[in-house]
Design a binder for these strands. Structure first.
Lengths: 328, 328
DNA sequence: TTGTAAGCGTTATCAT
DNA sequence: ATGATAACGCTTACAA
C-alpha cells in the first residue's frame, strides 16, 4: 500500500479500484489516521482557511457580521481565523502576520489604514473590504448608509418638520459615519437647507452623551439629534434626560444599527437596521470567488431598513414600522 | 548566506555575528521575505494557533469570553481559530477537524458532548473546558453558578419573604443552568422548603416567555420567577405584562448574565454578573500552560456578582448595588 | 559562528 | 490502477 494511493483515496480522487479503496478506508479507520493540515497545506500551497479582521466585538454588529461570514465558511469546509484590532498600535503588523496564515482576508472598517490594505493587494492576497470604500481593485461590501441617511433625515425634515437637526458623530473616524453624514447633509441640501457642522465624537455611549450635552447646551437648541449609531443615541437620550428634556417632545433622537437594546429604550429609538448577517455572508461569497480565481468580483451594497419607533416623534401604534430603503 | 543562518536570525536565536545579522535583516527587508507558517509549522511540529469552540454568538456572553481569550492569545503572538457549533448535527466532526489545525482547544458548554471531549483528550490534544464540568483530567474554567444561585435565591427567600419561587430553565440543557438550578434547590432546602420542579425551556427570549406564561397560569401562582439567563427573564417580564401582572409588585423576576439590556428593562432586572472577559482570559492562560507542558493545570472557578436592581422587589435607590459572591 | 543535509507529512509528476 | 520520488519551505542536529 503506497502513500500516494492513500492520498488519492482520502481526497476522493478517481483512479482507485473500489477494492483497494475499501482497504485503505479500513486502515484509515483503524489507525485513526488524520492527515496533517500543515503538510497538506505546504504541498498544495493553500491553507484551507480565511481570516476576518474586525475592530471590536462589543455590541452585536460585528458579532452578527462574523456569524454571517462563519456560516459561509463552514459550509465550504474551511476554517476561520479572527483578529480584533481594538485600536492597538501594532494592528497592522498583526494583520500582516495573519495574512500569512490564510488564503484570503475580510478586512472591516476601523481596523487598519488603506495603505496596509493596498499592501496586501500588491502581495496578491485575495482581500474583501466590509463597511469601507473599495481600495483600488479590492472590492467592498457595504450597506447603503448614504441612502438610509437621506431617508431618515427627510423623515425628520418633512415628516416632522424639524428645522434644527444636528448630526452627532465624527465622519473622519469611520467611512460609515462619513456616508451617514453625507446623506444627512445631502437631504438638507435637497430641502434647500444647510446642515450645521457635525458635533464630533467617538462611538461609545459616553461619547454620545458628552456630545449631546454640548449640542443641547447651545443657545439655539437643536430640535433633533441624528446620531451615528445606537450607542451614541442612547448616550444622547441620557443627556437629554439629564437636562430635563423629554424625547421626543423636546428633542428627537435617532440612531443606527437597531441593536436589541433600541426597542427597550424608554424613548423607543427610531433607527436604521443593517443587514449585518447578510453583509458577512456576501463578503464571504465574494472572497471565495476571489480565491477561486474569479476576477469579476464586484463591490456590492446591501439595502437597509428604516425602523420607525417613537424617538423621532412618531406615535407608536405598533411596535415598529419598517421601511426598506430602495436600491439607488 | 545559508538558509540556516536566515532561520536563526529570523527567530532571534543567539550565535549570530551582529554583522551578518544586519546583513540578513537587510535582505529580509529588501526581499519582503515572510516565512511560510505552513512550512515552519510542519518542521517545528506546532501550529502557532489555538481554537475556541462556542455554541453561538448572539448575546454578549460568548463575545465577551472570546474577547478575553483573544487578548491573551494575541499577547502571545498566536493565532485564533473559531468555530460556532449552532446546534449543528455535524458539530463533532467540525471540532475533530478543527483540532487538526491547532495546538490546543477551548471548548465551551453546549457545543459537543463529553465523549468528543474525551476523545480529544485521548489524542493528547491540550483542551480546556469553559462553563462545563471537567472531564477526566481535562481542566475547566467556570463561574460560581451554584454559589450565586444560592445567594440570589436566599435574597428572594429571606430578603423578600418569597415562598412560591419557580425556576425557569432546563438543567439538562446546560451545565450552567444545572448548577443554577442546584443552587436554587439547595437554598430552599437550607430554608426548610422544597423547591418545585423547574419549568423547562430553552434559552431564548421567546422560550422564557412561553415558560413564564405556563408558570404564571398555574392555579397557585408563583410569586417569583428565577430565570436561567437574562434573555429568558426578559421573555418572562413580557409574559407577566401580557397577563396584566406588574413586576415586581405581583411577581418578581430575576436573570443571569447582566446583559447590557438588563439595566434598561422597564422592570430593572436583578441579575448575576459573570466575569466573562476574565473567564476567557483564564481559560487561555490554562490552555497555554497545558500546551507548554505543565501538567498541574488545575480547574478554576471565578466569583460572580449579584446585581440587585428592582425586579426582585428591592427599591431602586442607586442604579444598582453589587454584591460579590465570596469563594466557597 | 556558519554551512550541510536530513527530516516534517503531504501533493504531484512521473513511471510502471 | 498503483508505486516511486521529487518538491513544498522550513527547523534542527551535526559538521566544518
Amino acid at each position: 500500500m503506497s502513500i500516494a494511493t492513500v492520498s488519492r483515496v482520502q481526497r476522493g480522487l478517481h483512479g482507485v479500484t473500489p477494492a483497494t479503496r475499501e482497504l485503505v478506508l479500513d486502515a484509515i479507520e483503524n489507525l485513526r489516521y488524520r492527515p496533517s493540515s500543515l503538510a497538506r497545506g505546504l504541498a498544495s500551497r493553500h491553507h484551507g482557511a480565511t481570516g476576518i479582521v474586525f475592530p471590536d466585538l462589543s455590541g452585536p454588529y460585528y458579532a452578527d457580521v462574523i456569524l454571517g461570514y462563519e456560516g459561509e465558511v463552514v459550509a465550504r469546509g474551511e476554517s476561520l481565523l479572527i483578529l480584533g484590532t481594538h485600536e492597538r498600535e501594532e494592528s497592522s503588523e498583526l494583520v500582516l502576520d495573519l495574512v500569512g496564515r490564510v488564503d484570503g482576508l475580510l478586512v472591516m472598517a476601523r481596523t487598519v489604514p488603506d495603505d496596509v490594505v493596498r499592501a496586501l493587494g500588491r502581495d496578491g492576497v485575495p482581500v474583501v473590504l466590509l463597511g469601507r470604500p473599495p481600495v483600488g481593485r479590492i472590492p467592498a461590501v457595504r450597506e447603503r448608509s448614504f441612502e438610509s441617511a437621506v431617508h431618515l433625515t427627510e423623515h425628520l425634515l418633512h415628516g416632522h418638520g424639524h428645522r434644527r437637526l444636528v448630526f452627532i458623530g465624527d465622519p473622519s473616524l469611520s467611512p460609515d459615519v462619513a456616508e451617514r453624514w453625507r446623506g444627512f447633509a445631502d437631504a438638507h441640501r435637497r430641502a434647500g437647507l444647510e446642515a450645521p457642522a457635525p458635533v464630533l465624537c467617538r462611538f461609545r455611549e459616553a461619547d454620545g452623551h458628552d456630545a449631546a450635552l454640548r449640542a443641547l447646551s447651545e443657545p439655539a437648541r437643536p430640535s433633533g439629534l441624528v446620531c451615528g449609531n445606537d450607542e451614541m443615541a442612547i448616550g444622547a437620550c441620557g443627556a437629554a434626560e439629564r437636562l430635563g428634556l423629554r424625547v421626543p417632545a423636546d428633542v428627537a433622537v435617532t440612531g443606527w444599527d437597531d441593536i436589541p437594546l433600541a426597542r427597550f429604550l424608554p424613548s423607543h429609538l427610531t433607527t436604521v437596521r443593517q443587514p449585518t448577517r447578510e453583509l458577512g455572508a456576501t463578503a464571504a461569497r465574494l472572497l471565495f470567488d476571489l480565491i477561486g480565481g474569479s476576477s469579476l468580483a464586484e463591490s456590492e451594497s446591501l439595502p437597509t431598513e428604516l425602523v420607525v419607533r417613537a424617538s423621532c416623534g412618531c406615535t407608536r401604534n405598533d411596535d415598529s414600522r419598517h421601511q426598506e430603503v430602495a436600491p439607488t
